[in-house]
Amino acid sequence: MNTKNAIQVENLTKTFGAFTAVNNISFHVGKGEVFGFLGANGAGKTTAMKMLIGILKPSSGNALVANFDIATQADSVKKSIGYMSQRFSLYNDLTIKENITFFGGIYGLNKADIKTKTHALIDDLGLHDEANKLVGALPLGWKQKVAFSVSLLHDPQIIFLDEPTGGVDPITRRQFWEMIYREADKGKTIFVTTHYMDEAEYCNRVSIMVEGKIEALDTPKNLKTTYNADSMDQVFLKLARNLA
């Protein structure tokens, strides 16, 4: 299997005992695409994402991420992706600079690189006054912006974002999405989960998972037409409710 796509998933399945968390899903994400990965709580989103970032082995089926097999080349997958989640992103008891140095270090950046990247990142986000402050003292929105930038340190081709904007104020949320667009514009692929349905509309294409399966996958515009809805919120409700 070789592909031009950033992510290529075929018949991916994950079972835990008798329970099928991810049920035979197939899809692809093109290079430079902003791809929204939606679903209700417990629909299997997190399990699927864990398989794609190489920390969970699939029960069957296969997937290529940045042209590496997630089952057999998990280490290479991890090197070519960036990952940021709402639950954990940065160490609260380290300063911004220390976090950057640490994460740069674990991705094998050399000292000089870390130094230039640290400067660039702090300049970019305008955090000169905060660079030596503990991350825990930052407002959530800033923290998430820093976390996003940190996940880009090793210049990954694909960035996985797991509910990156939960609880963030509306303005910062938009600044965050501008950062996402900027990266996509540079040709990076973005794979993002969110509970904000308006954010789903920022994506080029979205998939909606219901009970382990992908029930819908299209551009937000087409989905709205197909399901005769005027917002993604309604599309989501229609899909998840009819099947629940």
Binding site: A40, N41, A240
Partner: peptide
Amino acid sequence: TTGVDPVSRK
């Protein structure tokens, strides 16, 4: 409703 999906929220 924080962290809860749109269906449960509604």
